[in-house]
Design a protein around this nucleic acid. Structure first.
Length: 564
RNA sequence: CGGAGCGUAGCUCAGGCGGUAGAGCACUGGCAUGGGGGGCCAGAGGUCGGCGGUUCGAGUCCGCUCGCUCCGACCA
């Protein structure tokens, strides 16, 4: 491709709305443009990268026996109502109405559609297993789109759905996808982790996330360098047994005056005790309307995902000040003793002795509280958010924490959707059974951003070889110099003949501008044709490296052969 | 959805005391150049996000509204 005939609208300055490296460089390099919040246009250069990513995914999905389909973006509301997600999915679902007033959703994911297709067309165990996938635009009306391609309202996703006769077989399908995903992310050249995850709104029995390590990532991960355990902090088990305080003899319960002292830090300082001996009492309102009290040790953070999962509700939120007041509670001094609410406790509170809680009275706390002498929680549950330094649930070594971008997520769904939508098959024994499902997503457009987050320097992008828009870039530094032009044209012709994807910068611009553009765009291999032609040499440089190498013009052919 | 910031040329931004708008880069034509966004000359480009109000007069003041971004909540 000749740069003079291509479309390279590169920018010298970062657009004011861009904050993170991937957003800045993808816009500056002429890969994407923003149309509106969370909506991006893919320019020719950007689309080349996107297609490369898609094709790597496609190749591995096909190898794994998955079958590509293409489902409508519009999905009838009735399907969403069947599974109940028309209401559960909330405002994130883009809803549209046709001329007759029939409601549709712009698909944010396609469990409903694919399950409908399967229930209408698969009747027998002989038709199973099946795994269908598609690569398509998805729509989610994000409350806060951000970071360019990392979180858009319209984005490209590869979604796959497996259908099996039993959970045992579904686990096999799941394991095949796990392996396939590892192949895909390896080939993409990314530094990633596979982590245990929560299933969230998609639901299901268990799931794994694939997370690309990145400073700007929204996923919080703990991992163990010793045994390889890795999990999203939302899903990571908290190994409290190793974090317990030593046993103590019970002291008598005492109410103490703590004027204007309510936060854990303040109470700890005021009473001269460790935050580990203070127990927070949090009042949560579950989405079914019930209020519960949840206790957690002062140094731990409650994990709402674990709370929601435990109570099996759609949502949970902290009670507001007004609600606390209505219940007769004093904000900042809430405690479990004499509390007229169901009390649950995080495991961090188990076997804790002589601790501090609010006294349900302004400016008073109880000290030397002990379970079960002073109160008794209904149950001890793991509600704690995992964090750096916690013991690994497998091997007890201290966990490390990191942030990353979730680029893939696989779920063993079980029969959640097949039950709701009556997707049944007739088994060998002649009985009708629900099909057991799994679903598997990859954020294709987000991957493009993730690759840049992980591969850039101060001058621009350094594309991994497998997804670079071109493999080779030729810079002719002075197109008015006949010799330079001739040599460059010749190399370009040869590279094309060898089937190398090459971008030939034949534009009539200053040399400096060409170098800057080349660095920004980040094509891995670069041949510079400049004043060296007088000595019959051209220069080779890899985008990721500083060193330059001189190649005699008559050896260029061999050199290109190596690039093939 | 809560909190904050910002909308002026294609891009990045200045002007803000009310008196009819500027820079750099980009763009067009020309010249000289050609190894890291370099130089010179000439030119084109704006209902100052929108609506309404105050005023003789509004980019500037006031109200509303739309858009974009950031922090948080939420979310794959």
């Amino acid at each position: 491709m000749r740069a003079s005939q291509y479309f390279l609208p590169t920018l010298k300055e970062a657009p004011s709305e861009a904050e993170v490296p991937s957003h800045i460089f993808l816009v500056r390099g002429g890969f994407i443009r923003q149309l509106a919040a969370g909506l991006y246009e893919y320019l020719p250069l950007g689309l080349r990268v996107l297609k490369k990513i898609e094709n790597i995914i496609r190749k591995h999905m096909d190898d794994a026996g998955a079958l590509e389909v293409l489902l409508p973006i519009l999905t009838p509301a009735e399907l969403w109502q069947e599974t109940g997600r028309w209401d559960v999915y909330g405002k994130e679902l883009f809803r549209v109405e046709d001329r007759k007033g029939r409601l549709f959703a712009l698909g944010p994911t396609h469990e409903e559609t694919i399950t409908d297709l399967v229930r209408k067309n698969i009747r027998s165990y002989k038709d199973l297993p099946k795994n269908f996938y598609q690569i398509q635009t998805k729509f989610r009306d994000e409350a806060r789109p951000r970071y360019g391609l990392i979180r858009g309202r319209e984005f490209i996703m590869k979604d796959a759905y497996s259908f099996d006769v039993s959970e045992e077989m579904a686990v096999k399908s799941y394991e095949i996808m796990k392996e396939t995903y590892n192949k895909i992310f390896s080939e993409l050249g990314l530094d990633y982790l596979m982590v245990e995850a929560d299933t969230g709104a998609i639901g299901g029995k268990y799931s794994h996330e694939f997370v690309v390590k990145a400073a700007n990532g929204e996923a919080h991960i703990v991992y163990c360098e010793n045994c390889g355990y890795a999990a999203n902090v939302e899903a990571a088990k908290y190994e409290f047994e190793l974090d317990k305080l030593p046993p103590e003899e019970e002291k008598p319960l005492e109410k103490v005056h703590t004027p204007n002292v309510s936060s854990v830090e303040d109470v700890a300082k005021f009473l001269g005790v460790s935050p580990k001996k203070i127990v927070k009492t949090l009042i949560y309102i579950l989405s079914d309307g019930t209020a519960v009290a949840v206790l957690i040790r002062g140094d731990r953070e409650l994990n709402e995902t674990k709370l929601i999962n435990y109570f099996n509700v759609n949502d949970a939120r902290l009670a507001t000040s007004e609600e606390l007041e209505k219940m007769g509670l004093v904000e900042g001094f809430v405690g479990p003793i004499g509390l007229d609410l169901p009390v649950y406790a995080d495991v961090s509170v188990q076997d804790l002795h002589n601790f501090v809680v609010g006294a349900n009275e302004k400016d008073y706390h109880y000290i030397n509280v002990n379970i079960p002498r002073d109160f008794k929680p209904i149950e001890f549950v793991d509600f704690s958010t995992a964090r750096e330094g916690d013991p690994c649930p497998n091997c007890k070594a201290p966990l490390k924490e990191t942030t990353g971008l979730e680029v893939g997520h696989i779920f063993l769904l079980g029969t959640k959707y097949s039950d709701a939508m009556k997707a049944y098959f007739v088994d060998k024994d002649g009985k009708e059974k629900p099909i057991v499902m799994g679903c598997y997503g990859i954020g294709v457009s987000r991957l493009m951003a993730a690759a840049v987050e992980q591969n850039h320097d101060e001058n621009g992008i350094i594309w991994p070889e497998s997804i670079a828009p071109f493999k080779l870039q030729i810079l002719a530094l002075n197109m008015k110099d006949e010799k330079i032009k001739e040599v460059a044209e010749n190399i370009y012709k040869k590279a094309k003949e060898k089937g190398i994807e090459v971008l030939f910068d034949d534009r009539e611009m200053s040399a400096g501008a060409k170098f800057k553009d080349a660095d920004l765009i980040g094509i891995p291999h670069r041949i510079v044709v400049g004043k060296g032609v007088k000595n019959n040499v051209v220069e080779y440089q890899h985008r990721a490296k500083k060193e330059k190498e001189e190649i005699p013009i008559d050896k260029v052919d061999e050199f290109l052969e190596k690039l093939r």
